[in-house]
């Protein structure tokens, strides 16, 4: 296989180049990240759930501790959340969506709820945490 004598003199100029290129390749492979991030602006929450408005201009999203979601007390699926909030808002332009997170609910559900409220066209999104939601 390697019985032919290798003439090294000409190769010698190329080997360091290959070494450096490999080194750079490995460096860039390890340092680059392909994760595409985006940002979601959220207003910092109310001091307590009691300070949030609860009148007729409010649609409430409840993040239950067991991972389920409710809109104004009615259980909804994650996929149907935008539609449910839209139905709650109706044609009004001044509706507030309040997101109440029960202890045990996850950040992913919280982010989904904020996005759903924004996509449904809420004028204002308020958030608060509560120990236990009592319907």
């Amino acid at each position: 296989m390697f019985d032919e004598p290798v003439r090294r003199r000409n190769m010698a100029s190329l080997t360091p180049l290959i070494d450096v290129v490999f080194l750079l390749l490995i460096f860039f492979m390890l340092t680059t990240s392909f994760l595409k991030t985006q940002s979601l602006s959220v207003v910092t929450p109310a001091p307590s759930a009691d300070e949030l408005p609860t009148d007729a201009r409010v649609v409430e999203i409840w993040l239950m501790g067991d991972g389920t979601l409710r809109v104004d007390g009615t259980p909804v699926e994650r996929e149907g959340l935008v539609e449910a909030v839209k139905a709650g808002i109706g044609a009004r332009k001044d509706m507030t969506v309040t997101i109440l997170a029960e202890s045990g609910s996850k950040t992913q559900a919280f982010v989904s709820a904020i996005e759903a409220a924004r996509q449904a066209g809420a004028h204002d999104v308020g958030t608060a945490r509560v120990e236990k939601i009592t319907p």
Binding site: V42, T44, P45, P47, L63, A101, S103, G104, S105, K106, T107, Q108, A109, F110, V111, T127, A128, R129
Partner: peptide
């Protein structure tokens, strides 16, 4: 925030 972190800790931080 980690997706699995509790919303409570995120809200506590935001408070």
């Amino acid at each position: 925030a980690d997706a699995e972190a509790s919303a409570e800790s995120l809200l506590l931080l935001m408070e």
